[in-house]
Computed example of a mutant assay.
Amino acid sequence: MKWFETALVVLTLLTGVIWLLDRLVLARRRARKAGLLEPKEPVLVDYSRAFFPVLFVVLILRSFVAEPFRIPSSSMMPTLLIGDFILVNKFSYGIRLPITNRKVIDIGEPARGDVVVFRPPHQPDQDWIKRVIGLPGDTVEFRDNQISVNGVPFAYQREGTYEGVGRGREMTGASLYTEQMPDRAHEILHIDQAAPFHLGEGTWTVPQGHYFVMGDNRDRSDDGRFWGTLPESQLRGKAFLIWMNVDSSAPGWVDWGRIGQGIR
């Protein structure tokens, strides 16, 4: 939602300039003209003075602390469901300027397994979410629904058959696996059906300053297998919390059990 970020910055600057200009110049002029009478404050100034502090606080929190996002697709199931509202830590990977996303303070870098929000190179106006698989310098291979990094395959344990709810019902019947990375584990989905070929198979070498990302729903994810590596400059932050889940196709609409869950 780059348009929202742009609008927030423009409105904050506009109301701030109006409020400051009135405080330093225009208010004094009105007072001199009014004489003994109480000067009347213009409506635009009144609204600017009221909204600027609110817009400023929202801009600071959203740009540098935490930003809310909504999950619109099934690409990160079963970790994230359609209708999940999540919070993204905006300073995990450095302080970045709004709109331009330029990093001005370097704090940290993504670790393998992090769930990250980013703007893909081919869709720079959209915010996507995937999991980091390959780090700079890695060689990532995806064959027969299994990942190897630098020649070392991840371990897989089948946990059963997945049963989806709401808009995620289409994934009912898929196989649920635990994918074991070197230092963390998470769940993924595969559709175990006979096919003449596996989509997205290949080998990728991750350049310096780039990352290789994939969705946890391996057969329903448009990720690095199809458009390549992700430049570090496109990162937005690290997803860390589900604060709400609303799916009008699910019984009761709200899944109260997901509220407050951490994202691993």
Rank of each mutant, 00 (worst) to 15 (best):
W227Y: 14
D223W: 12
G166W: 12
L230A: 02
D192T: 07
H186I: 15
P207H: 07
F226V: 10
G237C: 05
L199D: 13
F212L: 08
T229K: 05
R169C: 09
L241Y: 04
E232T: 09
A239Y: 05
K238E: 11
W204M: 02
G224D: 08
S175T: 14
P231F: 13
I188Q: 04
Q180W: 09
A185W: 03
G173P: 06
R218N: 07
T203C: 03
S221I: 11
R225L: 09
R184L: 15
G164D: 03
H186L: 15
K238C: 07
I191D: 05
G209T: 07
E159W: 02
R158L: 04
L189C: 05
A174Q: 11
T203S: 07
T178F: 10
T172E: 05
Y177A: 07
D183M: 08
G168D: 15
A174S: 14
R158S: 06
P196K: 12
I191N: 06
R218F: 09
G160W: 07
Y177W: 12
T178Y: 08
R225D: 01
A174R: 04
W243V: 05
Y156K: 08
A185L: 11
Y162Q: 08
Y177I: 11
Q157F: 09
G173S: 06
W227G: 00
Y162M: 05
G228Y: 10
S221G: 06
R220N: 11
A194F: 15
E201I: 05
L241A: 03
T178V: 15
L241E: 02
L189R: 02
Y156T: 06
S175K: 10
R236D: 02
S221K: 14
I191K: 14
R236S: 02
G215F: 04
G166S: 05
D223G: 01
Q193F: 12
G215K: 01
D219I: 02
D222I: 13
G160C: 09
R236Y: 03
Q193Y: 12
Q234F: 12
E201W: 01
N245W: 03
P231D: 06
V165D: 14
A174D: 11
P182H: 09
P207Y: 09
P196C: 04
A195R: 15
L199A: 10
T203A: 05
R218I: 11
